[in-house]
Design a protein around this nucleic acid. Structure first.
Lengths: 340, 340
DNA sequence: CCATGTAATGTATACGTATTCATTATAACA
DNA sequence: TGTTATAATGAATACGTATACATTACATGG
């Protein structure tokens, strides 16, 4: 059973294939009778338009790719949702690749996307190792937008936030409350640029306040509630003087709260906790979590709009957009307890 | 600046386009010298293989589509992650559509996917309104897999869970603890089949225990922590006799916990709460949430494997897979308080 | 030395559509 | 009635690749 094409429809309707094409694309250029005839035959034969072939003929690219490190994190959900919502308004479709934090996989995905003739690629977070490759892809005519971080790239577009500033602001907030021994739990800042910037923001804020950086207070792990709990338990057992912990992701902070409860300590009376992301659960947990609001969905929408706009206009000007973040003060941070 | 094709490479290498094609696809069928020559020219010219054109020529479909109701829900994350992980092992890529709970949008997406020549479509949850259409798409040769629910469809494949049974089991668990006035908060069961099955499981369990169904105890809303909080607050203010609430989604249960804290009531001493999904946060919140574990990632993996297998073998046999769920008993449910 | 097999390559065609250009018929207008 | 614009359609070609078939050169075996 062969797939039926426009040619079959054309034969059945006693017209040329060109006319069928016109009937579907520019019906006004076809007479009322033939249009009707063609429509009927299409219905009878269950003909299905092949848009892939059409895109090929038109030399038109209709896919936009998204590359993420992980799909599991609920943080990405907002970003993907935002991207998808904007893209679905256009004639493009979204195709998703997962690099699993692996630069080689990321590289393969980028190449695959390029060969698949994607119109553009949004890279949620990219290893710096692949920046050169991305620039070459960009040069070859595929639009690239980086997200999640305020980007220093000289060529590529980006839509992100200032992780460094947000992190140093939050650290300063804790310092302002009187904390001196402030722990830091974060994702893998050796691998992920934006996390490194958060780490640097934390370090620089401490330095500026003449607080020495103590590497025993710093833990890098894969962000999840479970790992946050484990990391917090570790900090608590090693360092009784700790009065605050900055978890650079709400999932980690959420897990940390659980570890603190297990130790029968109170938040924020005994210890202060703050997060980063403003995930949905953060305002409903107990105590509610002081954190940094990140406009993930807006970031996604904006990135999608940038790439669609670039594709359409073909303009070469570089766009770097930095969205605002702000500290959301809730109930999980307070002054440090008085020295015993 | 024109895109360079195999023909350009062929000319530069003084060979035919066919030879270039062979050099890339079946290098063993090309002599060592010409292969080397071609490789070099490809590097020099920055030629990029056009896999879209190749797919077209080969009449090969290489995309698999996923249609979801929403991307915001963290529940979907596990499913998508599982699907993606299996698909990336194959030569297919994943393309995502969001129907936003709208049957018409879903219909449009299905058609779009069909015209785009997708090899298969995984429908996370589909309106029953589009079942006929999906069956016709299936009949036209595009593989379709439904997920999330144990499916009664006579034709389509499915990988899901038994929402009805899981829900009635959980309700029976609450009844077994001694509860008689049991509230129910769920997503939109008038729109979503799997939620309706959860609702029916709840109702039938009550009936079987001779407990009358009180519609004042039942709230349907969009699943989110915020809406769970709102719904719970409403239940608490309307019905002081309530001793337990079954929230048919952990996000709703999580919000409900927050509303109960606001009323200065204790869980589970004053009121029991249970959820559905076993989201990541459910074991770390306070109290930890008794819920139904749903193997979302496995469901995704399985659905992806089913569709890939069907595509490859072209077999016609219908596959209906129902994965096990189980009640995870944690700290949020107990016996009802003694009557005052 | 001939027959046969095989490796390496070229030629030609197909995939399903959009679109340019050419053609015909018809309407509008002077 | 002749001219011209226009509507409707067909014929032909292009998009970039894979591949069946044809061709050539050369090796192997008798």
């Amino acid at each position: 059973m062969k797939r039926i094409s426009m040619i079959d429809v054309a034969k059945a309707a006693n017209v040329s294939q060109a006319t069928v094409s016109r009937a579907l694309n520019t019906p006004s250029r076809v007479s009322k009778e033939t249009l009707e005839k063609i429509i009927n035959i299409i219905k009878e034969t269950n003909y299905i338009y092949n848009s892939a072939a059409a895109d090929f003929t038109r030399q038109k690219k209709t896919l936009i790719g998204l590359i993420v490190f992980t799909l599991k994190s609920s943080i990405q959900t907002g970003l993907i949702d935002g991207i998808q919502k904007e893209i679905e308004k256009t004639n493009y479709s979204l195709i998703i690749g997962n690099s699993h934090y692996d630069p080689a996989t990321e590289h393969r995905l980028i190449q695959e996307f390029q060969e698949r003739q994607l119109a553009g690629i949004i890279v949620a977070e990219s290893t710096e190792l692949n920046r050169d490759f991305l620039r070459s892809v960009h040069k070859a005519g595929i639009h690239v937008v980086l997200t999640w971080d305020k980007n220093e790239d000289p060529v590529l577009d980006s839509v992100g936030i200032d992780n460094y500033k947000a992190s140093s602001d939050m650290t300063n907030y804790l310092i302002g409350l009187g904390h001196r021994r402030i722990g830091f739990i974060a994702g893998m800042y050796n691998k992920i640029e934006r996390v490194r910037h958060r780490f640097e923001g934390y370090c620089d804020a401490l330095k500026a306040a003449d607080i020495p950086i103590d590497h025993k207070l710093i833990i890098s792990t894969t962000p999840s509630a479970l790992n946050g709990k484990i990391a917090m338990a570790q900090l608590l057992s090693h360092d009784p003087d700790l009065t605050a912990v900055f978890a650079a992701s709400d999932a980690l902070a959420f897990g940390a709260l659980s570890a603190i409860r297990d130790k029968k300590l109170r938040v924020p009376e005994d210890i202060s906790i703050c997060g980063f992301d403003d995930a949905e659960f953060s305002s409903f947990c107990s105590p509610s979590l002081t954190t940094i609001h990140v406009p993930t969905e807006e970031m996604g929408r904006c990135a999608a709009n940038v790439i669609v706009e670039k594709i359409r206009t073909g303009k070469e000007n570089q766009l770097k957009i930095t969205l605002d973040t702000n500290i959301i003060i809730r109930d999980s941070c307070g002054n440090p307890p008085h020295k015993k």
